[in-house]
Amino acid sequence: MDFMPWQAIVFQSIPESIILVSLGLGLLGLYPPFKKVVLISITYSLSSVIIRALPFPFGVHTLILLPWLTVLLKSFFKMDWWKAFTAALLGTIIFGLVESISTPFLLSLTGYDLGTVMRDPWLRVLFPLPDEVLLGCLAWIVWRKRLFFFRSGRSKFY
């Protein structure tokens, strides 16, 4: 169970969602209008506030949010199910991978424990900032240079 303060929603969760969705779609060679990406990210982020408040162990929220993001992508962009699911998976995995590397490093560097970070709204915003900057740059490069793991076929986005 995790109650997200407004600071974390506005300055952490929403930007993170924008990067996650952009990366997931970009790596499939899909570049929809950015306004729609922002809209879907806000919806995803707000729904994640509710889902994270549910009394499940760590990780289950992610497993619930994954199909939810798939549904959102499918309904917003009228994509194939498999494209939507792959985009959601790719974005989530990349975030998870970077977080699993950076979090222990930042915790040991700052001397904070995770409990303290999660309880302090501003620490909670600051702590994932390096990840967000790094992945934000990556997403920007992916979109700018049109880099992708595999082209998932022509879509109505271009």
């Binding site: 760590f58 990780g59 289950v60 792959t86 998976l89 699993s100």
Partner: peptide, 29 residues
């Protein structure tokens, strides 16, 4: 095969993260 690889990676990432987050959250495993 692609979905299996991605799901497997996701599970490994969640496993790793849940160990990191264990002091603050109830663990999945």
């Amino acid at each position: 095969a692609l979905f299996l690889v991605l799901l497997e990676t996701l599970l490994f990432v969640l496993l790793n993260l849940s160990f990191i987050a264990a002091p603050a959250f109830p663990a999945l495993w």
